[in-house]
């Protein structure tokens, strides 16, 4: 295991940030710590880095217990949310900082340092900015310089706190891809913190979902999406329709294809793409009314309205490709038949 966290707890006054967390991260993974604001993900990252002290529990890096080691001895690279570039230093000096503060006997020669810094700047494709100051750079450039600076000390693990949080949407998209490729080339065990599930799914090889200071689920993005461990994960990762047996007619659900034999709880979560619709040809009991639809690029999201148990209207969302939708020849107000292909049951 490259990074291990054992029974970590952390309180801020009465607030529990981390509640007895244990986590193992194998060598070479790119892991996302995913969760809503205040779930403790940044605190966990800072405890692994040694920027914050846990109330209890241990941190192991490459098998060594580092719980009592200060951050500077942990051989980690940390990229801060707002980059924390040194404002009074040029880009070059920023990246060279970690090499120049080493004790004299470990320090590299000036020529080697220069070469190394320029190599790193080339790696992040910003060598042409080497004599600029941080205030003269764009957000995306600062982010990449911060990464180059963290990589300069050849860290055994790389920790990134909301690496794309402060960037424009378009820059963010580009950088995600870039970070994935960079990780692929360098193969440094990396953890990044994010509250954006789409970002976690797109970039990470492993996703750890946190909520209220606890780990809800850990696994590959596909596993987590297809087999959410609980209702929180199911709701947090991707879109989902929620059918509560207290509010929905069990008979109706059975008619539309939900097998009550699989039932393990009384709440069913259904992904929009697991809902199939077609134009109603006869008066089946399964019909719903098509209210509206929105274009989401290659997909269409369809809003369907069904009258509930006590006459209350409930919205159900379905998704399908543009082509499929066009072939159905549907209009607003049409009655459609609905079928549920698959559901996750939770208590």
């Amino acid at each position: 295991m490259s990074i291990s966290v054992n029974n970590i707890s952390k309180h801020f006054g009465a607030f529990t940030a981390l509640d007895n967390i244990s986590l193992d991260i194998p060598e070479g993974e790119l892991v996302a710590l995913l969760g809503p604001s205040g779930c403790g993900k940044t605190t966990l990252l800072r405890i692994i880095a040694g920027l914050e002290q846990a109330d209890q529990g241990d941190v192991f890096l490459k098998g060594d217990k580092v719980t009592d080691q200060p951050v500077k001895n942990r051989q980690i690279g940390f990229v801060f949310q707002h980059y924390a570039l040194f404002r009074h230093m040029t880009v070059f000096e920023n990246v060279a900082f970690g090499l120049r503060v080493k004790p004299r006997r470990e320090r590299l020669g000036e020529a080697i340092i220069r070469k190394k810094v320029h190599d790193l700047l080339s790696l992040v494709q910003l060598d042409w900015l080497h004599d600029r100051y941080p205030d003269q750079l764009s957000g995306g450039q600062r982010q990449r310089i911060a990464l180059a600076r963290a990589l300069a000390v050849e860290p055994s693990v790389l920790l990134l706190d909301e690496p794309f949080g402060a960037l424009d949407a378009s820059v963010r998209k580009d950088l995600r891809q870039w970070l994935r490729n960079l990780h692929h080339d360098l193969n440094v065990t990396s953890i990044f913190v994010t509250h954006d599930q789409e970002e976690a799914m797109e970039v990470a090889s492993q996703v750890v979902v946190l909520n209220h200071g606890r780990i809800e689920q850990q696994g590959a993005p596909g596993d987590i999406y297809d087999h959410p461990a609980n209702a929180f994960v199911s709701r947090f990762i991707g879109q989902t329709n929620v059918f509560d047996l207290d509010e929905h007619d069990a008979d109706w659900l059975q008619t539309v294809g939900l097998s009550m034999a699989q039932q393990k709880g009384k709440i069913a979560h259904v992904r929009p793409h697991d809902i199939v619709i077609e134009k109603s040809t006869h008066h089946s009991d399964a019909y719903v009314t098509l209210k509206d639809w929105q274009h989401l690029g290659s997909l269409i999201r369809i809003e369907l309205v069904k009258s509930g148990v006590n006459g209350q209207a409930a919205s159900v969302y379905a998704e399908m490709s543009n082509d499929q939708f066009r072939r159905l020849h549907l209009n607003r107000g049409d009655k459609v038949d609905l079928r549920i292909r698959h559901a996750h049951w939770f208590h």
Partner: peptide, 17 residues
């Protein structure tokens, strides 16, 4: 979010600071 980061700054001693 703000409330939490504010309390965390007060209540916790950031190690390196």
């Amino acid at each position: 979010m703000n409330a939490i980061s504010a309390t965390s700054f007060l209540a916790s001693k950031k190690l390196t600071l």
